[in-house]
Design a protein around this nucleic acid. Structure first.
Lengths: 224, 224
DNA sequence: CGACCATTTGATATGGATCAAGCGATGTGG
DNA sequence: CCACATCGCTTGATCCATATCAAATGGTCG
């Protein structure tokens, strides 16, 4: 499969142009459990690394986060994207199996995982919310896996619809992530992603004011 | 992609030959919370269906379960396989997004999801175990998604190693599921699965005493 | 023994990967 | 302020892994 040179961290410089996602006022016991000042991460910086001990659970205050796994041969996969209000860092075991990186300038709030679990044992509402958060993550990853068995057009369509649900302003989606990120999330090459965008634009399913902005014109067509 | 005729339920008849997995004595608060007599399901029968309300969380006592999703065009995907001791049915929202089916004769124990969550709010140990179970499911699905971006040989290799971890007796894995199930789990066709088994046998990574039995001869080769 | 089905094997087609070049926007130095 | 370099993205040409179509094989059960 595709092998690319990785580790060109300063290529992230230009990510700084990426559009900021509107902050969302966090609600619920889980969110309120995450005390303290939000921690800021610059575009492209690492929030936690693969192999590091799992200590915290995170909530995005504003910005965008990707979880990344790089295979030994250089192939790169993205496990998921997280935006304002989303919980991430829910992993099993003692160490992270993925790396989390800020895509644009991002702020997150954290809680110690052990504290959270202990508190859930006292607080019914928190237990329910923790269950909801983890179940939602299962559903999200499941949906991701489901995407990966589809054709290129279906993958990109599903991706755009998903982003439409999560970060659109009306029909406009401003993508914080690069084509490469999208490609690595969808399990295809950057060229195919680009071509597919062009095809969808040609069939008027979307409009592309610029590379990072997508207008969802015909959601039914994207769903096929 | 591949379209196949579905709904030939009685084709499952021959599944009855599939080998039974040894029962495991369930342990932990979560398992003990699942009261009552294990419920039995015959090979090929449905445990819950897509679209039905989510009421219970399940634990496999013995047997094997698959979760299935059939797309509108007939494509079929398998979300996961569950064996003795595994928890399944952890889904978000009000209705199941997948169907669960017994692959062979299977017994499961259940607990009402609402009861479980309520109890977790009282019982720290249960809260911890519930979190572990859901996190494990996240890790499993993640791993599944990761598989789907690899080559055919890598997918089959990973699959066999996973089964080796979960249901092997020494180096022998007796697969309860059909080639079609494996294909739908790995996002490839039955022909490619079959060919890949043959190739792996040719390179002495595995031996195939019969179609349903696999001897893992060289795990390093399967890992690549 | 004969029918049925799962599995394997063979031949061909194709969607997307790979290799390669061009384009456009942004930033930089003269 | 313009020429140039850089970088992300797009477009084009070719190749290959896997899908698709087709048929043979082999195990199981009535």
């Amino acid at each position: 499969m595709h092998v690319r040179d990785i580790g060109k961290q300063n290529a992230e410089r230009s990510e700084r142009r990426g559009t900021r996602v509107d902050p969302v006022v966090p609600s619920g016991v889980l969110a309120r459990s995450m005390l303290g000042v939000p921690i800021k991460f610059g575009a492209g910086s690492e929030i936690y690394g693969e192999g590091e001990p799992v200590e915290y659970v995170y909530e995005v205050v504003h910005g965008a986060v990707r979880t990344v796994k790089v295979l030994s041969d250089g192939r790169r996969t993205i496990g998921g994207f997280y935006f304002a209000g989303d919980i991430f860092g829910l992993e099993e075991g003692d160490e992270h199996s993925l790396t989390a990186e800020a895509i644009v300038d991002t702020a997150v709030r954290v809680i110690r995982r052990r504290t959270l679990i202990r508190m859930a044992g006292y607080d019914r509402e928190l237990a329910r919310q923790l269950f909801t958060a983890t179940s939602r993550e299962i559903a999200r990853v499941h949906n991701h896996a489901l995407m990966l068995i589809k054709t290129a057009q279906e993958r990109v369509g599903s991706f755009l619809l998903e982003m439409g649900e999560r970060i659109s302003v009306g029909d406009l989606v401003v993508l914080p992530m690069s084509r490469q990120d999208i490609a690595d999330y969808l399990g295809m090459t950057i060229e195919t992603v680009s071509r597919t965008f062009t095809i969808l634009e040609g069939s008027s399913a979307i409009a592309l004011p610029n590379a990072r902005a997508v207008v969802l014109r015909d959601r039914a067509a994207l769903r096929q």
